[in-house]
């Protein structure tokens, strides 16, 4: 008999991803509404120590799978081990953060267990003991409510959408036997940038620049982002021009972000850009064209030259501190 809610938590550089804590917090609320338990799963090389922290977010049981071959990006190995854990614990539903790894892992599990998966959910609730999700379709132009079918319902949650709330869980740590299973993709090299840069999808504040930046010098945007404690994003035009790395691109062919505050600087507001940021809480647009499309999607609009306005905003925010 299926029972409880499972959340797969990801460690990155020794700490849990913010979105994993968001997933746990939501998982805890769902488990409470079912009157059942919350199980966290952590996979990696040496995870049993850091995993204990998850009791703080309401995990009753923390299943740890330790093996050097589960550390980092190992979709094949992690899938094999996670399927064993799901089969063993038989949760009603499993939640993941919608990171690249979370989306890939959940897709592979959905395939193996032949159960439904809703990606990048904005809301989750339970009806008749089954998971129902809200998620965007058509590049954010529509929000759909979907029933997830199958004995184990799967969902990934969009970063920055759910609150992190502390709760008390028994936090019993259980090490599980690891069987890596058949691995058909061989990792040759993993290059992960360990920087102080905030990952775009997890940033609370994003300052994005477009073609109007007219060159690779994004320092005024970087200063504003640093003052806010956020990150810098870019339109596709700025990326294609070679001014910013692909990893900074927001939109349909870039990242989907949902910060508290998104400041679009010299971005015209094409649908494909909007698709990547329309679920931000508050949107500010700075554009010198009063008819720019971006103003249709912004909460606060400044019609002016961004090279004058952005440094002035940075100065004003510094005054608050």
């Amino acid at each position: 008999m299926a029972q409880g809610v499972m959340v797969v938590a990801e460690l990155f550089n020794g700490s849990f991803k913010k979105v994993s804590l968001e997933a746990l917090s939501k998982g805890k609320a769902l488990a409470d509404s079912l009157g059942e338990s919350l199980v966290a799963v952590v996979m990696g090389a040496a995870v049993s120590e850091p995993a204990k922290e998850l009791a703080k977010y309401g995990a009753d049981l923390i299943v740890v799978a330790q093996d050097a071959d589960l550390e980092g990006y190992r979709p094949c190995q992690q899938h094999n081990v996670l399927v064993d854990i799901i089969n063993d614990k038989a949760p009603r539903m499993v939640l993941f953060g919608a990171t690249r790894q979370g989306k890939e892992l959940s897709a592979n599990v959905s395939a193996t267990l032949d159960v439904g998966l809703a990606q990048e959910c904005l809301d989750l609730f339970i009806e008749d003991q089954k998971l129902v999700a809200k998620r965007t379709l058509f590049g954010g132009k529509i929000i759909a409510t979907v029933d997830i079918e199958g004995d184990t319902q799967l969902a990934t949650i969009r970063p920055n959408v759910f609150e992190i709330t502390e709760a008390t869980g028994a936090g019993v740590v259980e090490e599980c036997a690891v069987n890596l299973g058949t691995v058909n993709v061989t990792l040759i090299e993993e290059k992960v940038e360990v920087s102080s840069k905030i990952e775009l999808t997890e940033a609370d504040y994003i300052v994005s620049g477009g073609r109007a930046m007219d060159g690779p010098d994004f320092s005024i945007l970087e200063n504003l982002a640093a003052t806010l404690g956020g990150a810098v994003g870019a339109s596709r035009n700025a990326v294609d021009a070679g001014w910013r790395p692909q990893t900074d691109q927001v939109g349909q062919t870039g990242k989907v972000v949902s910060p508290k505050l998104y400041i679009a600087c010299g971005i015209s507001g094409a649908m494909q850009h909007i698709a990547g940021m329309s679920t931000s809480d508050v949107i500010v647009a700075i554009n010198n064209d009063p008819d720019a499309l971006i103003f249709k999607t912004s909460d606060y609009s400044i019609v002016d030259d961004l090279f004058d306005v952005v440094p002035a905003i940075t100065e004003e925010i510094k005054k608050l501190a």
Partner: peptide, 8 residues
């Protein structure tokens, strides 16, 4: 991959 690239 998250935070970088992998060669596989």
């Amino acid at each position: 991959i998250d935070g970088g690239t992998a060669v596989v």
